[in-house]
């Protein structure tokens, strides 16, 4: 390969960011390195750069999410892009045609990047096939939420100095969690040891095939973990179908000091938010000195800046 050919290889060889499944360790390192710089910049007074000057970013949310949307909006604005938020309210049944029509309509407005959250798995990928711009998956059903996994990885890397070799226990509603799926893919790509901890009713089928060690006993699942990543348990899952009650769930699967003591003494405590204090995590654990839940939110903006920046490098340039 000639020198010139190497120079033409994009640093981040993807047009869209749809899933963590397709990310390699170099891809992830590249994004995290970029995000590191943004994170440092975000702590200064002058937070703006102009790498996305003239670009249009559309946040298209078919499912309400205050924090993810705000995070993407800030990320776009700090990079100098024009950001438009579209919230397609209500999760009323939308047929495939409607989604595609929306995509075609938006595409006609010539955006550069569309950030999409949708309640249906695969919807973001479907939309990406119908537009000329880049698409970022901001969460599709129970499938993927790649920027969450990236911000988790960045938080871990900044706290621990590495990801490879760490034991990460992801605990809670794995069945319905796109955060869990994205994290399992990403952490495996980065050579971490991944565990999932949940009652069997909140595990998908063939959980062992995900590349994680499966535990239905949290005391065992947390043993010697370097990172304890709690997932949110939605209230509608506690009505006796998946879990008998929030009381029982907290007793056996809530992160309290007793269970936390099974993990390593310097284990990080993480949660993608929003938290149900007293359901999946004890209030005092959430506010523990080892809790990095606030840092996760902070890294969210930095990681999203890195993703927008990386994708924009592959867009047609002026």
């Amino acid at each position: 390969m000639t020198h010139a050919a190497i120079a033409h290889l994009p640093a981040f060889p993807h047009r869209h960011l749809l899933s963590c499944e397709r990310l390699t360790a170099p891809d992830i390192d590249f994004l995290l390195d970029l995000a590191d710089k943004s994170a440092d910049q975000n702590q200064k007074i002058e937070k703006k750069r102009n790498v996305l000057n003239g670009r249009t970013v559309i946040n298209l949310f078919f499912e309400a999410s205050t924090r993810t949307q705000a995070s993407f909006e800030l990320a776009g604005k700090r990079l100098g892009a024009d950001v438009m938020n579209m919230v397609v309210a209500s999760s009323s049944v939308r047929k495939g045609e409607t989604l595609i029509d929306t995509a075609v309509t938006l595409n006609a407005m010539r955006p550069d990047i569309i950030v999409v959250r949708h309640y249906a798995a695969g919807a973001v990928e479907l939309l990406s096939q119908k537009v000329d711009c880049s698409v970022v998956n901001a969460g599709d059903g129970a499938h993927q939420h790649p920027t969450q996994a990236l911000l988790d990885a960045l938080t871990i890397r900044r706290a621990k100095g590495r990801i490879a070799g760490l034991t990460v226990a992801i605990c809670g509603d794995i069945l319905h969690s796109r955060v869990a799926r994205s994290n399992i893919d990403l952490l495996n790509a980065m050579s971490a040891r991944v565990r999932i901890v949940a009652p069997s009713t909140l595990l998908p089928s063939n959980p062992d095939r995900l590349g994680a060690e499966v535990f239905t006993d949290m005391w065992q699942g947390l043993a010697d973990a370097d990172v304890v990543m709690m997932l949110r348990l939605q209230h509608e899952r506690m009505d006796g179908v998946y879990v008998p009650s929030s009381r029982e769930y907290f007793h056996f699967f809530g992160l309290d000091h007793e269970k936390l003591a099974r993990a390593k003494p310097d284990a990080l405590i993480m949660h993608p938010g929003p938290m149900n204090r007293g359901v999946e995590i004890a209030s005092t654990v959430a506010d523990h000195s080892r809790s990095v839940i606030r840092e996760q939110v902070e890294m969210g903006v930095a990681v999203r800046m890195a993703v927008l920046e990386a994708l924009s490098q592959n867009l047609p340039q002026a």
Binding site: D239, G240, V241, V243, P244, S245, E248, F252
Partner: peptide, 15 residues
Amino acid sequence: MTRGLKGEEMTEIGL
């Protein structure tokens, strides 16, 4: 194993 033996919602089997 279901509340009120109604066959709908699980009871607190663990506790």
